[in-house]
Amino acid sequence: MNDEKAFGLLVELFSQKVYNTCIGMLQNMEDAQDVTQEIFIAIHLNCKEFKEEASLSTWIYRISVNKCLEFIRKKNRKKRSGIFKSIFTPTGEIEMNNHSDFIHPGIQLENKERGIVLFKAINLLPEQQKTAFILHKLEQVSYNEIAEIMELSLSAVESLLFRAKHNLRKHLSVYYKKNEK
């Protein structure tokens, strides 16, 4: 099989997974499309580096997660200079209300409103917690595979997910209090 055909097959097999990971991580459809494209270029350029120590899916997820985090950091760096002060409350906590509403296209209609709030809260999580949570909740990746993707131990992943859920509860509780009528 030549390179062209192999790459075509790879796109057919993994583009949906990559695209959905990007949507969850970036919470912006246009950015997700751009980064998905970038990820496949990176896969093509680095395919020689793939060692069969991990499965192909794990390796592709790892590249996807890293590219998304890289994109988020770059975007945040640009934003930081202008709005640094405005996004912080006097207590130093970042507010959920400052994040734009993202409606995930795959979310069920009855969960739309809650989904928007949850995505805002997910955005406030630290990088690693956010990555583990998205992979687990949105992509249904097993704890073992998350550990391989993030190059962590299984117990570290369990701890990350536990802390992610704990922090989400905290953020949601604050949001509930503020928006209670």
């Binding site: 949906q16 995930h104 296209p105 795959g106 979310i107 069920q108 989904g115 949105l138």
Partner: peptide, 10 residues
Amino acid sequence: LNSLDAIQPV
């Protein structure tokens, strides 16, 4: 927290 449980892949 459970609102993403039945999420469909895009």
